[in-house]
């Protein structure tokens, strides 16, 4: 048996053990589905939710919220990070503003998200943006600050004769590993904000909304189903991203990066 299959087998065994222990505790120790739904409770809740067809729809809505927020965070965070990392004037100018806005918890933006955008996908997206923007910005900024000087000088003597060319051909590729790990962190934060945004009524759809709604209905097995789907979807997004980064963007680096 090689190490990989051993790792897989042990992983599956551990998960199975947790499920069995969970089932025993839920059924024989706690005994109330409202306090702790058992594995079988959750499984049948999952089956009936799957039958009603709302699961997929809510997942898609959540992914849409997440996509809007992440896209906006990327479109603003990367360019502003580049400006601040490359041009000192931009750094001096924007840094105080960023430093004041950054410590505000993203969820504190929820009231204004609702007032500005109403109960729309954009409102949920805005909350995710508020969480994802700063990690991307700071990662891009420090990625640019850490570009080795010799790369920039090599670029200059080889014919890059404008800031644009130096950024495009030297600094940006050099900063990609930093930006990629910033995006990964941002996706984690954004995913958390997604649930909170939907729970707080920014949206009437989505996994976070359904989780909260089912809590009001005291449908605790359903709550667990949504918890698990949220975790699993977050995991899948992270895996896809990491795989893409390692295989496509960072082939030039030996070993794992993001």
């Amino acid at each position: 048996m090689n190490l990989q299959t051993q790792k897989r087998l042990l992983g599956v065994a551990a998960l199975a053990a947790v499920a069995i222990i969970w089932q025993i505790i839920a059924e024989y120790v706690v005994g109330r589905s409202f306090i702790l739904p058992s594995v079988t409770d959750v499984a049948s809740a999952f089956a009936s939710l799957l039958g009603s067809g709302t699961l997929l729809a809510d997942t898609m809505v959540s992914l849409e919220h997440f996509g809007i927020g992440m896209l906006a965070a990327l479109l603003l965070g990367v360019p502003i990070g580049i400006l601040m990392g490359w041009f000192r004037v931009a750094d001096f100018l924007l840094d105080p503003i960023i430093e004041i806005l950054r410590p505000i918890p993203p969820l504190a933006w929820i009231p204004f998200a609702i007032i500005w955008f109403g109960l729309t996908t954009q409102a949920a997206g805005f909350v995710i943006f508020a969480g994802a923007f700063f990690p991307i910005l700071t990662a891009t900024y420090s990625g640019f600050r850490d570009v080795p000087r010799v790369f920039v000088e090599a670029g200059k003597v080889l014919g890059c004769d404008s800031s644009f060319e130096l950024i495009r051909y030297v600094a940006l590729p050099a900063a990609v590993p930093a930006i990629a790990s910033g995006i990964r962190i941002a996706m984690g934060v954004g995913w958390m904000c997604l649930v909170a945004a939907e729970m707080f009524g920014v949206s009437s759809y989505g996994l976070g909304y359904q989780l909260w709604h089912n809590y009001y209905l005291h449908q605790m097995p359903n709550v667990v189903v949504y918890m698990l789907i949220l975790g699993l979807t977050g995991l899948i997004i992270d895996r896809i991203f990491r795989n893409y980064v390692d295989k496509q963007l960072l082939r030039w680096r030996a070993g794992e990066v993001a």
Binding site: V150, F151, A154, V157, G159, W252
Partner: peptide
Amino acid sequence: PDPKRGMVFQEYSLFP
């Protein structure tokens, strides 16, 4: 700087 004057640096300067 000008490409008419090529430079080879002490540190490794290839773009990785």
